[in-house]
Every structure is written in C-alpha cells, then in structure tokens.
Amino acid sequence: MQISLDINGSLRDVYLDPRTTLLDALRSHLGLTGTKKGCDHGQCGACTVLLDGRRVNACLTLACMAQGAKVTTIEGLGSSDALSPLQAQFLNHDGFQCGFCTPGQICSATAMLEELAAGWPSHASTDLEGPFPLSHAEIAERMSGNLCRCAAYSNIVDAIQNAAKDGDAK
C-alpha cells in the first residue's frame, strides 16, 4: 500500500506491504537505521520513537497507523554537531556501552521528561499530583521499558538528571 509518513519533519512517500511495522518501514524502507530492533515484541524498548511527541514501540506500531502523525526518531533529535542535551549527557556519563539500546533510551528519556513536566505520576510517585522530583527512583521506574544488557542504567539515570538540569538552565 502507498502511505505517506511525516518523519523528522519531512514527508516521505513509501510503498509497503500492509503488514510492515513502523520499525521495519524506518529501517528497511526509509534508510533510518538508528532505530533498533531488539525483540520485535514490545519487550525491550530499543525501537522507541516519538509519535506526536509520545513514546511508542515502533515494532508494535504498523507503519500505516502512523500516517498523519509526526514521527521523531533518534536521527531527528540531534546530530553530531548539534546534540540534544540528553545525547550530550549520555556521552558524558557513559550512558551506554554497546550502544544498541541507546537510540531507544534517548528517545524514551526525551518523552519521559515531557511526561514528568506534564505531571504524569508513576508507580514510584508518592502522590498523584506532583510536581515529581527527578529522583533515581522516579527515573528508573519511568525508564523501565528500555532494557540495557550492558547495564548502563546507573549512568543513564545520571545522564537524564543532568540533562534535565541543562534543560532547566536554558
């Protein structure tokens, strides 16, 4: 089927098997291989992208369902000469090792900070109203959909806390 996707601010027309997931469309048909396939089951979070600013597992989203939405991938968050605050802090704090889960972690963290700012509570929150502290417990709980076998978790929390501070400073 012929579909049109708004990806990182540009409209892309692509002809796809209707069964094609957003993840496979990005990777195999649109040349955006920054988004990774770690499980294809919605279990690991490596394929996390933003759909109208909200984080989704691209492996559980059919490409045709993403028509009309703004899709943001790791390639759209920043580049080597213009890193996002999160990207810069992931680098500083060694928030990755092999790097395979990293695009998903960064996309997820990007949306997670928005959710925090919007006052969404989590299982780790002590009340439902907020504002919520950028504590280890809050961040770890909210990032638990993104697995990292190298286990950069401790560093990822540091990176997110510092990126949030950078964001506040701006």
Partner: peptide, 21 residues
C-alpha cells in the same frame, strides 16, 4: 575520557550488522 565512537551511538549513526543495506 568519553567513548571516541560515542557520537555515532547517540545519534543513530553506528552501523550494526542488521543496519547494512
């Protein structure tokens, strides 16, 4: 020091096996 290949990993530019076209 931070990883020298880190820029590629945080921007989606690192090419793992399945990324090859």
């Amino acid at each position: 020091v931070s990883r020298s290949e880190g820029q590629h990993k945080i921007t989606g530019g690192a090419t793992y096996a399945a990324d090859a076209g």
